[in-house]
Design a protein around this nucleic acid. Structure first.
Lengths: 213, 213, 213, 213
DNA sequence: CATGAATGAGGTTTCATTCAT
DNA sequence: TATGAATGAAACCTCATTCAT
């Protein structure tokens, strides 16, 4: 009982606030989100928010970087599946592409992109922080895989970083178009079509030596 | 006569307001831009803004679509240069890619992207309007060119729309990364590197028949 | 009728705000006075206050300097009565002293002193502005009178500024004590006693040559 | 023993809080001083402040009366030097005046005056408490000395209380003007000039019988 | 007794928008 | 039509004060 009460005070209000903040920011955007609502969603009083995070701005940054970390973790896990591709490469890549695309369409990922973009003019440093925690590290991880695959002769890639970048933009670029920057759901069939096209083009460009004629 | 001048004055004011609006929105973002400042930059009084555009929101939409039209016009002109490519295709594409990339880094184009993205949650329909006036139509135009080139046997493209999309994202995608979503200037050398890489990959994937081994 | 309506908008809301501001600041002190209440007392909406005066602070300064000017005007008028003292000097001085003392106990004058003092730590420049508009100029004016009287041989004063200063503090100093810094009304009898004592001491120190023995 | 130390610690903390409170109140004024900062300066946690003093207001009163007592003690010690003035009276008075003036310009004394004045509207009773502990008792003490001096025939004073009051305001009044209510340091030369003038006027008014012509 | 954490209340300010000329 | 002046609505933030340890 006493423990329960104690718990109430302890069970990371800080985390609750962070989560609520991301939810509300995602729902309303930075400017239209009011700390009041964040506090309500988090189940705390407004000043508690300010006790943990100095500013609305500070809160925003924390919420965004947390979300960025989470998104990155998910994506890294996917890339990691390329580590030992028993299935033939095209299949493995198609699978990866599809799953990445799915992740891209995920609520959290979309909100992260919106919010990051929306603050471009106000806080360029935040953009840097988010990008370095997401796109950059995802690109790196993928480049690592590509380098291994190239060494193993599974694919002909001279510049793994470039290849990774191209692979990713061939997926995410068309996806942004199809989903109208994430405002419209992309049916699975379209998701499949986009990723298939991406992998096709990618493999045609970086085709494995043994597939050459 | 006097009427004409008045008419002129009116038209000019409207345009001045639109320009000022885009300038201020680009500088501050939608929420932080205040109608007051827009009026000042336009050299009119605040109510005059409301006489021409009902709402801050309406003004925003008009300003954005106007900017979108302008950006599109620039890009279409570039694509049009592919109409009769006397120079060999790789050179022509590289040239196009570089010029598109340049345009992408342009102040107006960057601001347009920021602002569009930032309002994703508030007005999805605006996103649609902007995209259909820019990316979509640019893709179409490029697809047209690709179709002609394919017919002429200059390149092997089965799905011109898809090829156009891939061509464009191979340029813009990496650029967004390099420029940190447009917050950092991209030196010409990097611009060249990115576009060269894009064209390389594109041509490797959609290589011209006569270049095949 | 239309004129009436016009009047409503015109009849210096600015002045109404200034008056209300002084009233409310005097009632509550700077910090506890809220702009809300000032607006209500002035019969305008809160933002109107901010349209005329940028800040609560700015409003405070304007209100205080306006009050200072008013208080000064009253006091100068009193001093001016010394210009041609047909009545014997002691009577004239006693009269002046009494009237100055009365003015000192006046609501507005007391509030001005409180408010000025209370902001000493926050805005020393305001203190300067108020003092130079009140005490300094009152001292000057009185010194002028004393100089004339000395020239006329009515009183023996070597340093008129010093004499004026002493004359004034002999009145206001004891008054602050009696009134407990203005928190307690001073009955007319006490007022008379204080001023009589002041003039006695003053004349004893600066007695006219012909009165000596 | 341990109890003693604890007791000590407690006493020390209470005193530390009182000191910190006066420091912070003096620095910021009543309203802008926040208990948080007082606690920090005192080196304790916020609730500790509330454990010792119920209120911000209560704390203020305690801090102010403590300061008033200290200021009074200093001044009384000065007045006490008049007890047996072997030196000629004018010198002794000039000395006293100068020392009182110095004390008046002291940081603590100035802050005490500011703070007292600033709360005039909020807590008239506090004004009473402070005045009765400072000005009143100082006046009394001085009146005592004057009475003795008068009895000894050193000075012609019919009403010692009145004389004491006049003596003090002739010093402090001009000083407040010169120092702009304490916001500007008064150079020693000015201090000397002011006090000399005060004593001159005082002695001219209450001149000793044997000095008369 | 001392404290970290939480909160209720309230205040300044900003801004989109509308009158009335 | 263009504008100076006015306003309603809200949002951020601060702070005195209290729990529960």
């Amino acid at each position: 009982m006493a423990a329960t009460i104690t718990e109430r005070g302890r069970v990371d209000k800080r985390q609750a606030i962070l989560d609520a903040a991301f939810t509300v920011f995602a729902r309303r955007g930075y400017a239209r989100a009011c700390v009041q609502e964040i506090a309500e969603v988090a189940g705390v009083a407004k000043p508690t928010v300010y006790n943990h995070f100095t500013d609305k701005d500070t809160l925003f940054r924390h919420a965004l970087t947390a979300a960025a970390d989470a998104v990155l973790a998910t994506n890294l896990a996917l890339v990691d599946r390329l580590r030992d591709p028993h299935p033939p490469l095209p299949t493995a890549l198609a699978d990866l592409a599809y799953r990445l695309a799915e992740g891209c369409c995920d609520e959290r990922s979309r909100a992260l992109r919106w919010l990051t973009y929306s603050q471009v003019a106000q806080s360029p440093d935040l953009i840097d922080k988010v990008l370095s925690r997401t796109a950059d590290r995802l690109g790196d991880a993928l480049a690592d895989r590509f380098a291994r695959l190239a060494l193993a002769g599974r694919v002909r890639i001279a510049d793994p970083a470039r290849a990774a970048e191209h692979f990713l933009v061939l997926i995410t670029g068309p996806l942004e178009g199809r989903s109208r920057l994430g405002t419209r759901p992309v049916p699975p069939a379209d998701l499949r079509a986009v990723t298939t096209a991406a992998v096709d083009t990618f493999l045609a460009a970086y085709r494995t030596p043994d597939e050459e004629r």
